[in-house]
Write a protein that binds this DNA or RNA. Structure first.
Lengths: 367, 367
DNA sequence: TTGTAGGCGTTATCAA
DNA sequence: TTGATAACGCCTACAA
């Protein structure tokens, strides 16, 4: 046991043992050129002997780079947030950065953000649905909003960027798919988040474009399967009351799960009597019975894209020299939309043969 | 815009504007007593004007407390890990600490851990199934293993502690529950993790204690529902071949999901013909059709418990004065086992009426 | 009640 | 090829 007094070893301890100056230790550890191999070997031996580890705080103080990237969210429990976080972590690991994770209640965003920013992250990834505008006031480093509304984040200045999913287009695609199967219209269970709203918009747009009637959507009162179940029971009621409910588009897969449950409880067969579709953020929707038809993109990929955007900004900054803009850490680049995938599975199919008693519309043949 | 040259403001800038020394600024920010209210007001105004934020790196350098707690995991994608992480984050937020999150491939544990430890976390939470022993060699701060094997972590020294779940007891409870329903025995789909192994052990123990036959377990080849489905198909085969399969205990809810799928595909009714039970780490097992009977504890609670253990150690350390042990940051306290809950739902029920042709065992009445 | 001096552990700069 | 010295931004101790 080396006699350095039980303290955590510092560079000077290594230097003493290797019989060099602490400066040479620094050179070795940072792979600076011009250190005699023999000297380097002595230093490395001393490092190993002491179990020495550089102190990033001290290093950050002088280099002005913390090696940290912050993730800030007001929805730390949300499954999508968590999955995006996993993607962020993976990308950061590959880039040799470390992730700082801070969750906040919507009202505490400022306080929590201040705490996060105190650690001087070089960039941030934000998942703060509906509070994107507050990011600009934070005076933090370059920030990428995951799944924010590009139109709204654009006005927040060059330090705030967005990676997003084309929810509207995805909902449009899926709704059209159901119409193409022969459904006269598609019902909808709407959710409470901004992305959900965009999906609802796509659904409405597709119906209008096809000239299909736009049924009153059911709104969930609670996120997750519970809300979906309640909405599903309501839809079953409407169906029992004579409304032609043959296809339902849920705002997300969690809602769809509750929907499936409610329909089963109501004795309705999926997809025999009612088709159900969701939004693909649930990894195991393929394993539900029936397997869920879904459209969407993996939030983890979104998270990865956010990090790449941040790091691309960093690289550019390193090339140009950072003098051009304020010294705010990484700078973000362009804002792509992640492509979505349509996964048609057993929960959707053609509508049941027409024996519906609604006479308003003659049973014209559909494509 | 204050003329401090576009730099990020530092304490000296605040001091200049407030016309005090930087020391007084520090006093205000740390709520030290003995600052005239008027002076404090001037300082706060200057802080606000400049948007000044303390630099935690510099602070950590002198106080030797980073305000960080690290989470280190070799299973960053695992749903349980992620849910525990959420619990850790919540507890840390309440404690005013910030979370550092690092994932690693099992082979990269050392490298990633070094990176994490370089940021000088005051404590760590580890989710490194099967690699707990490597933690001791890391020479890090006090570390709490989430869901580790207490017997094995005990030998890792006082710096490594465990918060766990009594998997064995939980499996025992659930197996006994199925036997009590009248099942002659309970089949089992085993998983690949250490916790899964403990569950398998509890299952076996309960069967032996009841004098029930112990059928060959099915082992999953892949984690998640996919593996469960394959195992389920295999069990359906065994049943078709004449084996009395009336109840199945899955190593976790994800496996159970695949199991339900496979049984449905095989035309077997749950719970009419086969009862299925899982381990309750899946938040929405209540919303499956049929709703899944489950036993377990919320990983998020485990994560919270880990943090409390860490912080309790810190408090104790603060009271005793930290001179007693090596200066390794927080110290961990005792190691509790989280209680589990048995949630009986529709996926389990009594076995079908005996019309099975196996004659070896006379149909004795069971409790 | 406030200010000055010194040091935390590292990297950058310049001199040898 | 190596070493001395000066920051980096902050806090503690002591002096005024």
């Amino acid at each position: 046991m080396p006699a350095n007094g039980g303290r955590i070893p510092v560079m000077a301890d290594v230097a003493r043992i290797a019989e060099v100056s602490h400066q040479t230790v620094s050179r070795v550890l940072n792979a600076h050129p011009g250190v005699r191999p023999e000297t380097e070997a002595r230093v490395r031996a001393a490092v190993a002997e002491l179990g020495y580890r550089r102190n990033f705080s001290a290093r950050a103080l002088v280099t002005r780079r913390s090696g940290l990237v912050g993730v800030l969210t007001t929805a730390p429990d949300h499954p999508d947030t968590v999955r995006a976080l996993v993607g962020v972590e993976r990308a950061l690991r590959a880039a040799g950065r470390t992730l700082l994770f801070a969750g906040a209640a919507p009202g505490d965003l400022y306080t929590v953000a201040e705490r996060l920013l105190g650690h001087a992250p070089e960039g941030c990834v934000a998942m703060v649905p509906g509070q994107e505008a507050e990011l600009a006031a934070l005076n933090g480093p370059a920030t990428v909003v995951v799944d924010g509304d590009p139109a709204r984040t654009a006005s927040l200045g060059p330090a705030v960027m967005t990676v997003g999913i084309d929810h509207r287009g995805a909902a449009d695609t899926l709704t059209r798919h159901l119409l193409d199967l022969g459904h006269r219209t598609v019902h909808h269970v709407a959710g409470g988040t901004p992305s959900h709203a965009a999906r609802s918009e796509g659904w409405r747009r597709a119906l209008r474009a096809a000239g299909a009637p736009v049924p009153e959507p059911e709104a969930v009162t609670e996120p997750g399967p519970g809300g979906g179940r309640a909405a599903g029971l309501a839809l079953a009621h409407r169906r029992a009351a004579g409304e032609e409910v043959t296809a339902v588009l849920a705002a997300d897969d969690h809602i769809a799960l509750g929907l499936l449950q409610a329909l089963a409880e109501s004795g309705l067969c999926v997809p025999g009597q009612v088709s159900v579709a969701g939004f693909g953020e649930r990894p195991d929707s393929a394993h539900l019975c029936p397997a869920l038809t879904t459209v969407g993109a993996d939030p983890a990929e979104l998270g990865g894209a956010a990090v790449r955007l941040l790091l691309a900004g960093a690289r550019e900054q390193a090339e140009n020299g950072s003098a051009t803009t304020e010294d705010r850490g990484l700078r973000a680049g362009a804002a792509p939309l992640l492509p979505t995938r349509l996964l048609v599975r057993q929960s959707t199919g053609p509508p049941p043969v027409r024996r519906l008693r609604q006479a308003e519309r003659p049973p014209t043949s559909r494509v």
